[in-house]
Design a protein around this nucleic acid. Sequence first.
DNA 1: CGTCTCCTGTACCGGTCGGTAAACTTTACC
DNA 2: GGTAAAGTTTACCGACCGGTACAGGAGACG
Lengths: 178, 178
Amino acid sequence: MLPAIAEVFREHGYEGASLSLIGAATGLGKGSLYHFFPRGKEEMAEAALAEIDGWFEREVYAPLRDAEAPDKAIAAMFDSVDAYFRTGRRACLVGVLALGDARDRFADAIRSYFVRWVAALEAALARAGHAPDDARALAEETVAGVQGAITLARALDDPAVFARAMETMRRRATHGEH
Amino acid sequence: MLPAIAEVFREHGYEGASLSLIGAATGLGKGSLYHFFPRGKEEMAEAALAEIDGWFEREVYAPLRDAEAPDKAIAAMFDSVDAYFRTGRRACLVGVLALGDARDRFADAIRSYFVRWVAALEAALARAGHAPDDARALAEETVAGVQGAITLARALDDPAVFARAMETMRRRATHGEH
DNA sequence: CGTCTCCTGTACCGGTCGGTAAACTTTACC
DNA sequence: GGTAAAGTTTACCGACCGGTACAGGAGACG
C-alpha cells in the first residue's frame, strides 16, 4: 500500500495528493488510512519517503559503497535508476518535494536522500580510479543530471531524452577513469 | 502583478497556489483577479507562463539564435540563467509544472519552452564550432542540467551546488569547441 | 460460544477551495 | 460636471479539504 501512496504524492505533489485520491489508490477508506497513519497526510508522506529511502539505500547506495567491483556497481546504478524512473516517465518524489513548499517540512529526509546518493557515488567513482576532486564533481553532476533528465523527459514527453542523458553520464562515469 | 502570480505558482505548484495566496501576493481581491482573468486560475497560470516565455525568448533564445558572436551569447546565457534562478534558490515554474499533474493542461507551453531553449542553444553551439551531433547533445544536456541543478540545490539548500554545476556546463560549452 | 483486538464504513466537523453575483467606488474622457 | 467604463469590495455558493468520532464487522483465541 505504501507504493500506491508514494505514487499519488509523486504524481500530484504534497498539496495535490488529497485523502480521497490516496483512498482511491489504496482501496482504503479514511478510517483505515487514519488507523495506519494517525498523524494523517504528513505521516503518509513520511512513510512513503522512508520506503523510497530504504529502497535506494538497499539497491543503490549500499552497493556503491560496498561492492568489491565499483565499476560494476556504478553500471548497476545506471540500470537500477533507469528502471526505477521508468526511463523518465516517472517523477522522483524527493525531487518533487524539494521543488515545492513542502520542502521545509521534509527537509531532513530530502537532504539525506541526496547527500547519501552523492556520497555513495563519489566513493565508488574514487575507488574506480577517478581523482578525488573529479569523483566529487562527477557524483554531484550525475545525481543532478538524473533529476534534470526526468524533468526534461517529462516536459517533452519523450523518454528518449532521459535515455540519452543517462548514456552520456554513464560514459562519463565509466570511461574517463584514471 | 504577473511576476507576483508567477512566484506563487513557482513556490506552491499549480494545486497549491490558492486564490487567497495569489490575492495576498498581488494585493488584489478575488473580484479583481476575476476581472483580469475571467477564466480563473488556469488563465492566471497561462498568463504567468506566457510572461516567462516572453522573457526567455527576449533575453535568452533570441540572442542565442541571432548574436553575431555565438560564444558571447552562450556566456551571456549562463549569466542570465544564474541571475534568473537566483543561483538555484528560485525554482523554475515550467519545470515544476512539468513534474506535476498540471503537465497535461499546459503541455504545449511547457514543451515549447524547452524545445525552443534546446534548439536555440544547439544553433549557437554549432555556430561556435561544435560538431552538429555534439551541439545537439550538449544543448539537451545543458538545459536538463539547469533543471537538475535547481532541484539539487534546493534539496540541499545550498546555492553553491547550482553554481558548481553551472560552471561545469559553461566550461563544456565554451572550451571543447572545434 | 464468548470476547477481545484489529480493522473498516459512515457520518460528520469546521474550514477552505475555485468560482459567481452584484453593488459599489474610482478613474478617464467629453 | 456628467457619464460611462474600469476596477474593487463584499457576500455568497456548492464542493471538497484534512481530520474526528464511533458503531459495528472480521478473525483469532479461549
